[in-house]
Design a protein around this nucleic acid. Structure first.
Length: 591
DNA sequence: GCCGTTTTCGGCCCGACTGTTTTCAGTCG
């Protein structure tokens, strides 16, 4: 695990452990915030930690947190965490993760029933002794049982590529049954996060009860968790296109049409972005909730229940405008400084329709299912002006990587296809392996014959950060390389991948006008959003490629573009958004 | 524990839902 990830986890632990000791909630929050700030860092915290002022400059990191970070970097542990773990059994951290079980309940279970882990919780449920606790009835326990079962099976957050089609299907069914209602997908799906906690769907409808009923009785609903007047919550058992079953939660919220904008903001989140906006509202004598932006007053009763007229609420742009800030696109709403984003950068933010080329795709020559012509036709149908054929290199025998002899013939075949097919430029390239020491899988003489070179790491993905940095720098600095494909080799939820010094890669990429790739496949999304942010802040070129092996892989482009937007990427820095002339001139500049 | 174009001390977002309650605590997002 990278240092950032480990340290973020340590701070999260401290927050949870403090919560279980009944500590002040603001202190708990402060630690949770530091955890989030560290997890969002593109640079290695071990580097940053050398400079105490740099730590203190991070929003949410104060003197005490800086001390703890430096202690961790020196000793590999934060003594406060160790001390807390002497007081609080570590197994309770797992118990706390069960939905519906919060700090108060877990603390009670621990102190009254000596529950210190999930198995012991299961025991007091099974023998019924849990019912002796105050406010603990049959129904609560029944829900707890199901939640434990669900947590054991579901195993964490769902990749966006799995959740998005499920959400699309649900909305399609609801729309068909209730054509007059207005539906919006909100939550982390709308923000384009790489993984999704649950599917949030918003509906403005007159017959809200009927819509909620349709939702709760969908065939994929496994269990109804809540069925209120405005909120329904269900657990889904849904199959993906490959036939695998996924367990995840979905919520449907019914809102009045006049507050759809405020509701959409509220349910899109992120929670932390919303907190920022509410703080901003309070400073202006206003209060913001999911019903709208209202004048703030002393009254305890929520304004919408007293017939107070909102200042804004019908649309998102009304609310942002009334707060005096630019409309922040959903992908940016992560409390990463977006409320202060410069207008120019916002106006030039990359859009899906800006993408006019794909520079990383496979054919039947290696492990794809499309011929060169088929690939070109699919790309043309997407409105691209250029498609690169980049089959695997020789060190990928599993993927039918091309020997130098086969590659020479393949280049010819690609150029011939380019002659035959009108309306799109088909260019010859290769996805060349970056070997563990940074050497490329073909010699320069051969690479020179290619129109585009995508250099990617495939093996040795557990090497140490220093070796990884050296390896990737070598490829970035190589004069014949255009793009570094999926630079870290990580797989969402499945493989950590390399942890190179991202700022070093960005600096070198800038110097050599090499582009770093956002691989758009939902299993990769590599570079990830915080890396893209650092790259685009530095003015580094980014390529967004689908790494298509089959025609529908191009559908993943939306996820890649969302990651780019989460990294505040403007269209000028995305080589796939360039005109034919500009793109090809850059490609030739490396020949 | 952090933070400051009203504050270096005194604040720190807001509402819905559930299950257990005779008015509300706990959890969630």
């Amino acid at each position: 695990m990278s240092t950032n990830k480990e340290l973020a986890a340590s701070f999260k632990d401290i927050a949870s452990l403090l919560e279980l000791t009944g500590a002040d909630k603001f202190r708990v929050n402060a630690h949770a915030r530091v955890s989030r700030v560290i997890a969002d860092l593109a640079e290695d915290v071990a580097e940053l930690g050398q400079d105490r002022d740099a730590l203190l400059a991070l929003d949410g990191v104060g003197a005490k947190a800086a001390d703890k970070i430096q202690e961790y970097l020196e000793t590999g542990e934060i003594s406060e965490r160790a001390e807390l773990l002497e007081q609080v059994p570590s197994g309770l951290l797992e118990v706390l993760k069960i939905p519906g079980l919060g700090p108060k309940t877990v603390r009670l279970l621990w102190q009254e029933k000596e529950v210190t882990n999930l198995d012991e919780l299961q025991k007091v449920i099974d023998d019924g002794s849990i019912l002796e606790l105050p406010r603990m009835g049959k129904k609560t326990v029944e829900n707890m049982k199901k939640a434990i079962e669900f947590a054991r099976q579901a195993g964490g957050r769902t990749p966006i590529g799995i959740a998005a089609p499920i959400a699309d299907d649900i909305v399609a069914v609801l729309k068909k049954e209730h054509p007059k209602a207005k539906f919006e997908v909100a939550g982390s799906l709308r923000r384009g996060a790489e993984t999704i906690g649950d599917i949030d769907i918003l509906v403005a409808a007159k017959n809200s009860e009927d819509v909620a009923e349709t939702f709760r009785t969908l065939p994929i609903v496994d269990q109804v968790l809540a069925a209120g007047a405005t909120k329904s919550s269900v657990r889904l058992k849904a199959k993906d296109s490959a036939g695998a079953t996924h367990l995840l939660q979905a919520d449907l919220r019914v809102v009045p049409a006049e507050s759809l904008g405020a509701a959409l903001m509220y349910f899109t989140g992120s929670k932390h972005h919303n907190v920022r906006l509410r703080e901003l509202a309070l400073k202006q004598g206003l209060t913001l909730n999911e019903y709208g932006l209202f004048p703030d007053d002393e009254d305890e009763t929520p304004p919408q229940q007293r017939g107070v007229k909102p200042v804004a609420g019908k649309t998102e742009s009304d609310v942002y405008e009334a707060l005096g800030v630019a409309l922040v696109p959903p992908e940016l709403r992560e409390d990463r400084g977006e409320i202060e984003i410069e207008k120019k950068r916002l106006d030039n933010l990359l859009k899906l329709k800006d993408i006019k080329a794909d520079l990383h795709a496979h054919t039947t020559a290696s492990d794809g299912v499309m011929s060169i012509e088929q690939l070109a036709e699919v790309a043309k149908a997407r409105g691209f002006h250029t498609i690169a054929v980049t089959d695997h290199s020789k060190s990928q025998p599993v993927a039918n990587g091309l020997s130098p002899e086969r590659l020479l013939k393949h280049i010819e075949a690609v150029h011939e296809a380019d002659e035959r097919v009108d309306g799109i430029s088909i260019i010859a390239g290769s996805e060349v392996d970056i070997l563990a020491d940074g050497v490329l899988d073909y010699d320069d003489e051969l690479l020179e014959k290619l129109d585009v070179v995508v250099a990617s790491p495939h093996w040795a993905l557990t090497q140490d950060p220093k070796s990884a940095t050296t390896r990737l720098l070598k490829a970035i600095e190589h004069p014949l390389v255009h793009i570094i494909g999926h630079p870290t080799g990580r797989l969402v939820n499945r493989r950590e991948g390399l942890s190179p010094a991202i700022p070093d890669l960005i600096a070198a990429a800038n110097e050599h006008t090499t582009a770093l790739e956002i691989n758009a496949h939902w299993m990769r999304l590599d570079l990830r959003d915080v890396h893209v942010r650092a790259a685009s802040d530095a003015g580094c070129l980014i390529a967004i490629n689908c790494d298509a092996h089959r025609p529908d892989d191009f559908d993943n482009l939306r996820f890649g573009v969302q990651v780019a937007r989460r990294g505040w990427l403007t269209r000028g820095l995305c080589v796939n958004a360039w005109t034919h002339k500009k793109l090809h001139s850059w490609l030739k500049s490396k020949r």
